[in-house]
């Protein structure tokens, strides 16, 4: 384990060859933005929008096109080339990125822009000292202050950050820069203590045991109608979710010249599955809410062997009418028990 003084972080950021994203104050909370010389805010807990937006931008050009007489000229957008460093993401969001990897970097097709960016991304995870009341990462087997497989895990000890590399790439970077010193034994045990204590601060629990199997049996249960009743069908939960990956493809053009781009889309929107002939397989919010919960709790496990939820709590924190996935899971468990 290595240590770096917080005052030396600007030197670290400057030494990194690529674009460095750090947490910044944004709106009534925090967000990730390219480092501009300011150090990150000390009271930062987690960002409103997850760092998925760095790897999977909300809007991204695919190609530009030009109609030339009968012809179409297509010019693919130049992909992202610059290496990306995300400094200070939380273990839940690290997991979120790993889950997006399963979607975008696996299966018969790779998602080229995501994969290209991801191959060039270095993730520097900062352990949480304390969870928020809406955090329930431990329910999904995550730890608030440690992310297995992260390039770096870091712990904030006040004056210094402790760094432990978790990948070959992580070790190489740590060894290659002269900004670090070996951590003292005292510091290492402090970090371990922080890690253990952080776990205890996660009080919210979601009952995950057997939920997938239970939901498989209850697709038509009246509970769905009840749960969906208060949903307003906005997309806040999905856009702020670190694992939601749905997107739309759209064009914008003037006089036959324009761009095709992709942008986030939400399964909560009324026209999301609407077909050209007018048929909609998910016509009301009962089906839409059901799809969102099942995607996370049943389909993701069926397809990838992992839950599509990391317990970051953003959806419960930000839903205008306080829909709560943990409460839903508890309700569903009750229903299944009967």
């Amino acid at each position: 384990m290595k240590a770096i003084s917080k005052t030396a972080l600007p030197d670290l950021f400057a030494a990194l060859k690529g674009r460095v994203y750090v947490p910044v104050r944004e709106g009534k909370g925090f967000g990730f933005a390219p480092w501009d010389g300011e150090i990150w805010p000390a009271d930062y807990q987690n960002t409103i929008v997850p760092p998925k937006q760095i790897l999977f931008p909300q809007t991204e050009d695919l190609y530009s096109f030009r109609m030339e007489g009968e012809d179409i000229a297509i010019d693919p957008a130049s992909g992202p080339e610059e290496p990306i460093f995300i400094f200070g993401l939380r273990p839940c969001d690290h997991k979120g990125i790993e889950l997006l990897d399963l979607v975008f970097r696996q299966g018969p097709y790779l998602d080229a822009p995501y994969s290209k960016r991801r191959d060039n991304t270095f993730l520097m995870v900062l352990g949480c000292k304390e969870g928020l009341p809406t955090c329930f990462c431990t329910s999904f087997g995550l730890e608030p202050a440690f992310a297995p497989g992260a390039d770096w895990n870091m712990w904030d000890l006040g004056e210094v950050l402790l760094i432990e590399p978790g990948t070959a790439k992580g070790k190489e970077l740590l060894d290659g820069l002269e900004l670090f010193r070996e951590a003292t034994e005292e510091e290492v045990s402090q970090a371990k203590k922080l890690r253990d204590e952080a776990r205890e601060t996660i009080t919210l629990q979601a009952p995950v045991e057997g939920i997938t199997e239970g939901l498989q049996e209850n697709f038509e249960h009246p509970l769905w109608e009840e749960v969906a009743r208060k949903c307003l069908e906005c997309g806040a939960c999905t856009y702020l979710c670190p694992t939601c990956h749905c997107y739309d493809l759209q064009s914008t053009s003037v006089l036959g010249q324009g761009k095709r781009f992709r942008c986030w889309d939400s399964c909560m929107y009324c026209n999301y599955t609407l077909m050209a002939g007018g048929h909609n397989p998910r016509p009301t919010k009962r089906e839409r809410v059901r799809n969102r919960f099942l995607h996370k709790l049943q389909y993701f496990p069926e397809n990838h062997g992992e839950f599509g939820c990391v317990g970051c709590g953003r959806c419960l924190q930000n839903c205008p009418v306080h829909m709560d996935i943990t409460r839903f899971m508890a309700q569903a468990k009750d229903v299944m028990a009967k």
Binding site: P57, Q58, T59, E60, D61, T252, K259, F261
Partner: peptide
Amino acid sequence: LRGGCTCK
């Protein structure tokens, strides 16, 4: 208000 570029 110009909307020439689609990306943020």
